[in-house]
């Protein structure tokens, strides 16, 4: 994200009601630091599979879908770095199992399936999850992990936050009680 753009956006959103302190400009030049980590090396076919999975969970509607927001690229980062090791392994194994299931049932990979068949396989995965979670001491489950990570990846992406939701980086005011009309998007933050 270009911070100069961000600052411009800020002043726009604040409706020009605030003058950014002169020193704020200096922040722009603060060196990008510790939180820049390299992306994991993921094979293109796996990225395609992740995109298909994410798009099945959050497809394109009148707002962009998960892969439009690049969720397939953040999923491996979140899965590898943020999950506990057991959940991480369940996720990657589950992804392979989903693809294998597709190949044995439909003779083609999950990514190559039409949307209704992807939904069918994922519905079965959700059913399995519902059975799984009612067991005592149920551990992590592929469907739940995949869904949670996709939601996180999508709604915190620039595309998801600004198009599927309403994103105000600097609201500039607190309006405590406003009328709400059905259909208006939720705030991203």
């Amino acid at each position: 994200m270009d911070r100069r753009q961000a600052l411009k956006l800020l002043t726009l959103f604040a409706g020009g009601s605030i003058a950014l302190p002169a020193y704020a400009e200096r922040i722009l030049h603060y060196p990008d630091a510790c939180w820049q980590t390299p992306l994991p090396d993921i094979a293109p076919e796996k990225t395609e599979l992740l995109a298909a999975l994410a798009d099945t969970i959050l497809p394109r509607t009148d707002t962009p879908g998960a892969s439009d927001a690049g969720v397939q690229h953040v999923l491996p980062v979140l899965a590898n770095d943020c999950l506990d090791t057991q959940s991480r392994d369940v996720f990657w194994a589950g992804l392979d199992a989903l693809d294998a299931n597709s190949r044995s049932r439909f003779q083609t990979g999950f990514a190559q399936l039409p949307p209704d068949r992807r939904s069918l396989l994922l519905s079965e995965a959700e059913q399995a999850f519902k059975t799984h979670r009612s067991q005592p001491n149920a551990g992590p489950h592929f469907f739940k992990i995949a869904k949670d990570l996709t939601l996180t990846g999508y709604f915190t992406s620039e595309t998801g936050a600004t198009q599927a939701l309403r994103y105000l980086p600097i609201p500039g005011k607190w309006e405590a009680d406003l009328p709400y009309t059905a259909g208006e998007k939720a705030w991203a933050l």
């Binding site: 911070r3 800020l10 770095d81 980086p169």
Partner: peptide
Amino acid sequence: LLNPWDFPHR
């Protein structure tokens, strides 16, 4: 001033 998507782990 960073946005959620500016962080690799959001």
